[in-house]
């Protein structure tokens, strides 16, 4: 922490904690520009709270709490818009009326050849994943990002987005259908071009 006589001011907080706050914000919202805005707003709120910084035991978790509340407010304010978008992605893209896979959307064993030379391919897959994640709508993308963070429970995700647990796994299911399909298409396209 700080030297004995160095006063804790807000500039010190920026140097000490802004990277941690940025990573937290980025893990929630995905967009670097939006994450930077959240970090800045957090410091402004912290400054305007007029708290005596010397009296706060854990400055980092204090700042993280401010940031967390900001991201939750953000999700709630855009949620109405996001829900509309999710409904649009219908199961009908993947399954017919009887719930059977459409011929062109059936998962094929496209990864069978992929697995053989593991390490490099795994790295390639990660790159393709970025492309496919960017195609997801806001709500499923945010939920997927939080789902795979080790420290976040599914209960917390449902609470953050104000959704029921059955809504939660339906959203995850749809997002995975979309991601898997996108990966398969990309890989097949790359193989055809090569």
């Amino acid at each position: 922490m700080t030297e004995e006589n160095e006063p804790i001011d807000i500039a010190y907080l920026v140097d000490a904690f802004s990277d941690d706050l940025y990573r937290f914000a980025l893990s929630r919202v995905g967009s670097p520009a939006l994450a930077k805005d959240f970090v800045q707003e957090t410091f402004i709120s912290a400054y305007q709270s007029n708290k005596d910084l010397e009296e706060i035991n854990d400055l980092k978790s204090w700042l993280l709490t401010i940031l967390k509340n900001k991201t939750i407010d953000h999700f709630r304010s855009v949620k109405g818009k996001m829900e509309q978008q999710t409904v649009e992605l219908d199961y009908r893209t993947y399954f017919n009326e009887s719930g059977i896979w459409h011929k062109d959307k059936m998962p094929s064993d496209f990864l069978a050849t992929f697995d053989r030379e593991k390490e490099k391919n795994f790295e390639d897959l990660k790159k393709l994943l970025d492309f496919c994640m960017a195609k997801l709508k806001d709500l499923p993308a945010s939920i997927i990002r939080m789902k795979y963070l080790e420290e976040v429970s599914s209960k917390e995700i449902c609470k953050t987005f104000e959704i029921t647990s059955s809504n939660y796994w339906v959203i995850v299911h749809r997002a995975k259908l979309q991601l898997r399909d996108c990966l398969e298409n990309r890989i097949k396209k790359d193989q055809n071009e090569a």
Partner: peptide, 30 residues
Amino acid sequence: LDKIIQERIMSSLKSERLTDKDKERIKTEL
């Protein structure tokens, strides 16, 4: 897919940092 997404997200987070310029901008704003 679970495995790839998890590794992708965790590894990208580890390396992410704000640039000095970003930090200066925040301090100026304050």
